[in-house]
Design a binder for these strands. Structure first.
Length: 458
RNA sequence: GUGGUUGUAGCUCAGCUGGUUAGAGCGCUGGAUUGUGGUUCCAGAGGUCGCCGGUUCGAAACCGGUCUUCCACCCCA
């Protein structure tokens, strides 16, 4: 062998068993997307750079994979830019396309481009890979799948409630118990910043607050101080660090805390309405937990913020996230269209299901029946029988060559085939076939005249 | 992008402070078993020790670089 081939860092091959498991998740997610009235779209793997750049903050820009222009792109760069050795100014001259970074921004672009053919409110789902030039870690890849459901053109809180129920429906169907849907509202965060006099430091404040469960109150306060938030402001925020108890308890505290902030109170009202409605409607297996420290996607979320945490005891970052964005399409020239969406992190859900052993056993059975090949007329009879089985939707195959029985049986065993069929010389003579149950070792003979006797209760 | 970590057979991993021909289990191939897998027994194949360079009489081991793995930070699904 020459040099061993490899794949880029953070990417993966998916083998048949992986695909079976991924399809299992995708099928369930898709099923509920459809049942909730979402319609599928797909967008290109790469977009024009200016569609993506600047939409995810500086950090996001860094993580976007840029695609080099075709042709002799370097000769078209002017000497000043070329010799400046500055990637930031050089990049736009040699690259005008980039790989999709998430599904939300391309969707916003799609809505604006197709606004005249879309019936609003528009509920769309999209399951496609996205790419980030991040450094890989557990559950973090450079190519991974997102499964998004978004509603645009509807700004009632009913959407928030519905999407929480959608999360619940999917995780219940996946038999993944103990998932927590964390809920916050950007208006709450803005209100807090207002009340504690840190309005112009909102992002730094929330990013630091987000780390509360990770680095503790001390760590958060230290970071806030370092980011230029005054000691008085941090002191005023003190009640937040101790916030705990039921959703109702927390809301009561917030109501007092945010009394002087119009925006904050509006956020409290939203959360109150959502949590009350969910209490009313009920959730099957997930739980909804208010979390004022939650601060994701600040670059475009304006209202609700969601984040889905794996069951306790599983070491995994969030397995889903989303929120409301009042003006996402505004950046592409379509004003006043409110949107809200959630995302399922397929690859992380996969890892969680794997860790908890929640994939159904049936996924391992890629083939239900294998016919042993005895060559000649016998193999033709097997092929005929296999075709009859296939017509009834049974996954059946004939071993492709007249190899040793031992080898064929071993193949069936390794592939987890539950039934092996033998049609040899003996069986040909009396027009029959033998079925071996691989789990029990039991063998039964059936007539080739009426194979349905065998397969009717498969 | 910053700091650390890992890489030895198809897989999981041993391999001592540098010393002859680099090991195990599982898997694979063949046989015991010419119509029976999964259990058992016997035999066998399979490695430029991630890659490039350096130190040394001698490197899987030490040093430098590079790629990769995983982890923390940043950020995120």
């Amino acid at each position: 062998m020459a040099q061993k081939p490899s794949i880029p860092k953070g990417t993966r091959d998916f083998s048949p068993e992986d695909i079976a498991k991924r399809d299992y998740i995708i099928d369930i997610v898709k099923k509920h997307f459809k049942v909730f009235g979402f319609q599928p779209i797909e967008t290109p793997a790469f977009e024009n750079s200016d569609t993506l750049m600047g939409k995810y903050g500086d950090e996001g820009d860094r993580l976007i994979f840029k695609i080099l222009n075709s042709g002799d792109f370097i000769s078209k760069v002017d000497d000043v830019t070329y010799s400046s050795k500055d990637s930031k100014s050089l990049t736009p001259k040699i690259s005008d396309k980039a790989l999709r970074y998430d599904l939300t921004v391309p969707f916003a672009r799609y809505v604006v481009m197709h606004q005249n053919e879309i019936d609003f409110p528009f509920k769309r789902y999209q399951i496609q890979p996205v790419w980030r030039a991040d450094r890989p870690q557990k559950g973090r890849f450079r190519e991974f799948y997102q499964c998004d459901a978004d509603v645009v053109g509807a700004n009632s809180l009913l959407q928030e409630i519905e999407l929480i129920q959608l999360y619940d429906a999917v995780f219940t169907d996946l038999k993944l118990e103990g998932v927590t849907i964390k809920l916050n509202n950007r208006k709450i965060l803005a209100g807090i910043a207002e009340v504690i006099d840190a309005k112009n430091n909102l992002v730094n404040f929330t990013v630091a607050l987000d780390k509360l469960d990770k680095i503790g109150a001390d760590g958060v306060q230290k970071e806030m101080l370092a980011k230029g938030i005054s000691e008085q402001s941090i002191k005023k925020a003190d009640p937040l660090f101790a916030l705990s108890g039921s959703n109702t308890d927390q809301l009561a505290v917030l109501k007092k805390f945010l009394a002087d902030s119009e925006q904050g109170m509006s956020g409290v009202e939203d959360l109150e309405y959502i949590t009350n409605s969910i209490d009313d409607l009920g959730l099957q297996s997930t739980q909804l937990a208010l979390d004022v420290t939650l601060a994701r996607g600040l670059n475009y979320y304006t209202g609700a913020i969601f984040e889905v945490a794996a069951p306790e005891g599983v070491q995994m970052g969030s397995i889903g996230g989303g929120g409301r964005y009042d003006d996402l399409t505004g950046i592409f020239g379509l004003k006043d269209v409110s949107g809200i969406g959630i995302s399922f992190g397929l690859d992380r859900i996969y890892l969680v299901l794997e860790e908890l052993g929640l994939f159904p056993e049936i996924l391992h059975k890629s083939l239900e029946v294998l016919c042993i090949n005895f060559g000649g007329k016998e193999s033709m009879a097997s092929l005929k029988l296999a075709n009859q089985l296939r017509k009834h939707g049974i996954r059946a195959d004939v071993y492709p060559s007249n190899a040793k029985m031992q080898k064929q049986m071993k193949y069936a065993n390794n592939r987890n085939v539950p039934y092996v069929i033998l049609i040899g010389e003996k069986e040909m003579m009396n027009n029959s076939f033998v079925v071996k149950n691989m789990a029990s070792g039991e063998q039964n003979t059936f007539s080739l005249e009426n194979p349905a006797v065998f397969f009717k209760n498969l």
